[in-house]
Simulated assay, not measured.
Amino acid sequence: MIYKWLLLVALTASGCQQRTEEEGSIASTHPELQEQLAEKSVATPISDSENPELYERYRITTEEYRRSGQFAETGMYSGAFAPLDEKSHPDARAFRTAIRKALQGGVNFAGKYTVVTVGCGTGCQQHFVVDRETGKVLDKLQGSAGASFTPDSRLFILNPPDSSLNYAECLDCAPKAYEFRDGRFMKLPEPAP
């Protein structure tokens, strides 16, 4: 009788154990859910408690650039996509696998380019611009807090305004606006203090 009781206790204990990392999350056992979670990111609620003046200044300047319409790109490239030209940029070969994979997504910037973002450490991203007609990597920017860009605009916001950042502590997180012109990023004026 005691053996049956010990067996029952052992089975109960093993059934109540915490999920191990090897078992994975619910998303990993349900591929459709994992795809949905990857597509939909959770946005941090806007709270400008860290540094409201800087955040507002960056936000307003960024919105003014977006609303101006001066960076609009009306034509969208619809021809065949050229393969990656690894010799076109000194860093292209080192990141060729990530760049090639991202190029599968098509045009996502300024009518005929693909911006490819590659991590380069904690709080570090490199943003490569690839011309889809030629496959050449034309330019690259490095930032700390992401980027904002669209297929129908030459405007590129490095480190877009984020109310959860403390700009006084993260000097490399300050937003910077660029226009992509003649295959290069041209820095736009920063907001006045």
Rank of each mutant, 00 (worst) to 15 (best):
F71G: 04
G105K: 12
S78V: 12
D131R: 00
E22Y: 13
T44N: 08
R57T: 06
P52S: 14
V115Q: 03
W5T: 12
G119R: 15
K87C: 00
N108K: 07
T117C: 04
G121V: 05
R66I: 14
A110Y: 11
I60M: 09
C16L: 15
F81Q: 12
A38S: 09
Q104S: 12
V118I: 15
F81L: 12
S41T: 10
T29I: 13
D131G: 01
Y65N: 04
D48K: 11
L6V: 10
K87N: 11
K87R: 12
R100T: 03
V107R: 07
R67P: 04
E21Y: 13
A82K: 08
C124L: 07
T114P: 04
G119C: 05
T12P: 03
V130F: 01
A80I: 07
T74S: 11
H127Q: 08
P45S: 08
A72D: 09
G105M: 06
H89N: 01
T61V: 00
R66E: 08
G123W: 14
H127R: 07
E56L: 13
G121W: 08
L103P: 04
A38D: 07
F81V: 14
C120M: 09
T20R: 11
Y77I: 01
L103R: 00
Q18R: 14
A102C: 06
I99K: 02
R100Y: 01
A72T: 11
L11N: 07
A72S: 13
S78D: 15
H127F: 11
L103E: 00
F81R: 13
A92K: 07
S28M: 10
D131F: 00
L8A: 15
R93D: 01
H30P: 03
A94G: 04
G75I: 10
A38V: 05
A110N: 15
F128D: 02
W5V: 15
R19K: 15
G119Y: 10
E22T: 12
P83N: 04
V118R: 09
D91T: 02
S14Q: 10
V116N: 04
T44Y: 09
H127T: 02
A92R: 06
F95G: 02
S47C: 13
V116T: 06
V129Q: 03
M76C: 08
Y113C: 04
L103A: 02
Q126V: 08
L7C: 07
Y65R: 09
P83E: 04
S68D: 06
Y3A: 14
I99H: 02
E86I: 11
Q36R: 15
R96A: 00
R57Y: 00
Q34I: 01
S47R: 13
